[in-house]
Design a binder for these strands. Structure first.
Lengths: 247, 247
DNA sequence: CCAAGTTTGGCATCTAGTGTCATAGTACGT
DNA sequence: ACGTACTATGACACTAGATGCCAAACTTGG
């Protein structure tokens, strides 16, 4: 052991930690990520190379330190959340992440540029979002790791992440623009409406069998129609679709 | 340049390449990934350390060499595909990847175990699947990088990857079992049916502040019912749902 | 058989990351 | 105040991945 990778004991020296991050981001931006050595950062931050490694574990971790903290916050949020409406909870969690990104652009925007430019950092960022996705997925599936419910949870988690990143990326490209909260909520509603309904449905249908196993014994019907179309037209379309598929 | 990272010039020595991969996988499995040095691999493969780096760029790349080749194949497949049915094309591409995994378990299964055990490799694997996701997403959105169509493409790509990995993982945990092609196709159909329909519909209708779950230009209706339920019952449910939401 | 180009190997070097140990700073009980 | 125990820091050494450089070996073509 002896190295412990830090991670929880973060509080003492939290502000000094942020100062180091700021210095590192500046150096990375000025001279490039690869060209900046840990020695450079240590000198600029006024500490020894060894202590730098102790505080942050690795060079990448300096850049993603605050991101890691955020993830832990989100995890605690999910742990503490009631499970009456998992989809809404996950949507809120995603909103939290978005909120934190737009709240401190002085860190997230330079980091975004660095991440785009350096493959190694890009992979790290992707791994980060994958951790969110796994957390969301676990929360949505509520323990199940196989079966239709697990699959739906994974697909929904993936879609939520995709929607989040879709809007976030567009803002990061032009951070001087106002924060697109509306588009965020629309995008989030878009994915949670379609797949989220599939996750909720089996529980809300008390009448039919729908017993425990649920191993692929269901069929899925999806209809898309412009808003405002009369209900009968929708019914007609559904009837047509049912006929076509032999249901 | 001078280092070129190889990648396209792979053919001369392709079989020798695979032999090196096999040797490396064996060493990694026997002694652990971290504990196996590039020198060890070089000796076991009968070549110099320097040449090993030239052929594979990095230690990780040895393990993922064949995976990279597969990705290139998939990319070419997407480039060559007609764009009459992008969703079906992406589904086929995902099927190709699945096929390649189950085709050579002697490489993919040990790699899976290594990837699960070593965080660094796990991140690499995740980055790999993210590349697929990006390729799928680009193909589905057909150039658009913003707007509803782009978002749908990204969510669908994410869901396709999620479904693929869902089934793949379950097989990798028990590779002696028969390949679950049926579950793969079911899972793929599940996600492409729901989100895929949204992508096909042009429906750029004006927003009409639909009550409740609306939020987008379209309304989405999703129904899940046990297979075998009479069509009229489905219609009745749909009618009920429409009435409830005020459509 | 020789010339031009490519592949390979050996060597040096750079840097991230880790183990170790001594020292400086700090909290605490007497 | 004083010594003690604990923690943070820094200096040093070392491992290993990765890259540049150059010479030797090999391949190709005339």
């Amino acid at each position: 052991m002896a190295e412990s990778t830090d991670g929880e004991r973060a509080r003492p020296g939290g502000s000094a930690r942020s100062a180091v991050v700021a210095v590192a981001v500046r150096l990375f931006t000025e001279a490039g990520y690869e060209a900046t050595t840990m020695d450079d950062i240590a000198v600029a931050a006024g500490m020894s190379r060894r202590s730098l490694f102790r505080r942050f574990g690795s060079k990448e971790d300096i850049l993603f330190a605050e991101h890691d903290d955020l993830f832990e916050t989100v995890e605690r949020f999910l742990e503490a959340a009631p499970d009456d409406d998992p989809v809404a909870t996950v949507r809120s969690a995603a909103r939290m992440v978005f909120q934190e990104y737009v709240r401190s652009p002085e860190v997230t925007v330079p980091r975004f540029r660095l991440v785009r430019a350096v493959p190694r950092l890009r992979d790290r960022e992707i791994a980060m979002t994958a951790r969110y996705q796994a957390a969301f997925s676990r929360f949505l599936a509520r323990g199940e790791t196989a079966g239709r419910r697990a699959l739906t949870g994974e697909a929904l988690a993936a879609s939520v992440i995709a929607a989040h990143n879709h809007v976030l990326r567009s803002w990061l490209h032009a951070p001087q623009e106002p924060v697109p909260w509306r588009r965020f909520d629309e995008a989030m509603g878009f994915v949670t409406d379609s797949l989220g309904a599939l996750l909720r449905e089996p529980a809300e249908a008390p009448r039919s069998a729908a017993s425990g196993a649920g191993a692929g014994a269901e069929s899925v019907l999806v209809a898309v129609y412009p808003a405002g179309i009369p209900g009968e037209d929708v019914l007609a379309r559904v009837r047509g679709a049912l006929g076509a598929e032999g249901g």
